[in-house]
Design a protein around this nucleic acid. Sequence first.
DNA 1: AGCTTCCTCGATCGAGCGTTCGATATAACG
DNA 2: CGTTATATCGAACGCTCGATCGAGGAAGCT
Lengths: 211, 211
Amino acid sequence: MAESELQTATEHEEKLERLLTIAAEIFSEKGYHNASIRDLSKRAGTSLSGLYYYFASKEELLFMIQDRSLRKVLTALRSKLEGVASAEEKLRILVHNHVGFFSENMAAMRVITHEYDSLQGEYRTRMTELRHEYSDVCQEILREVRRFTSAGDVAPLNVATSALFGMMNWIYAWYTPGSNVPVERLAEHLYRLFTGGFIGPGRSPSGRRAG
Amino acid sequence: MAESELQTATEHEEKLERLLTIAAEIFSEKGYHNASIRDLSKRAGTSLSGLYYYFASKEELLFMIQDRSLRKVLTALRSKLEGVASAEEKLRILVHNHVGFFSENMAAMRVITHEYDSLQGEYRTRMTELRHEYSDVCQEILREVRRFTSAGDVAPLNVATSALFGMMNWIYAWYTPGSNVPVERLAEHLYRLFTGGFIGPGRSPSGRRAG
DNA sequence: AGCTTCCTCGATCGAGCGTTCGATATAACG
DNA sequence: CGTTATATCGAACGCTCGATCGAGGAAGCT
């Protein structure tokens, strides 16, 4: 009994994960409101009504995609940050983690950034909290960076945080993972752009040069 | 005759502009696919069928919003750039123009950045071209900046361009025009963040500090 | 007056949507 | 064997949507 229940439990979870992956692709391609549950049923090879055994509504489906994906990003980030002392290195890890996750899971990340407004009520509230959690981690790192590098007050921390997320999240609008620029290099470009700026230290002969 | 025709022509254009403004607000609030022509008819005080005298389809309505708005941004930018020699000043003008337009016309700009994928076929093609036109202007300015300031190759020009647009376009996701940060200051923050970076020149005592 | 053009409207169509419901197959448990 | 839980399905309901159509009103011209 215990074995079979466990078995069906994992099988259930596996099928759910598969449905979420396919749904993320469809939502990413056609947009949440323009995508139909029937699209999902066709691509998943399941009947329309059979899908509702795995989620209660289309909106819950959208929420599960966003919640699980962002949670993965956040836990992966916290794991990588363990034991790191340098503030700048923390920031570098954050950018690489974010951009890396983006390129590996483009569909889900696109749904997160593009279909956030499609959530309402309780789902919206819970997702807002999770986003704040992530944003706070980033902002605290920026605070450390500013303290330990005597970085000037170029911009308020919240503006800088939003600018950084803008740079990173906008990737979905132009970047294709199989392009000339590998992901690691793209992440490094964005990291250096944000920390050192486009003009950088080249104008004065003091010669700081990242990495 | 000529007078009355001109009169009705401007009245026609005025009503169309008013419809586009209201539609932009609705699309911005509910999203393109979730907003209905009936919503527009209610808020505009016109009958449902009467609206179709001013546009052929819902998608053409979306296109007109995006096309007219982005065209305004582009022509305003080119006008402001006339006679400016300094590359950095050109970049500064671009950022201020873009951010300024964003805050003054939040709904339409949000529709441009958020509902670009909702266009298809011919409309999509024409909008893609216009976006490229705008992006090219920006990229050329960045090329000038890099040449005339001996800025290092922190990132490829297209990556830098996309990063800059990411910073600027992401505004719609967090900024509210009536907040603590005035628009001009926000634009200046983003300009300095992009050119000089978050850490900036503070680490080395050479002391460059943007104007 | 008659004619034409611009503009607006109510009524309606056909299609697609999310969701529900009852039936059914399978398999493990008593 | 009977019972129960798990999982899947076809058919249908109720609703909203974008778009169309023909009828009209208002205003200017001949």
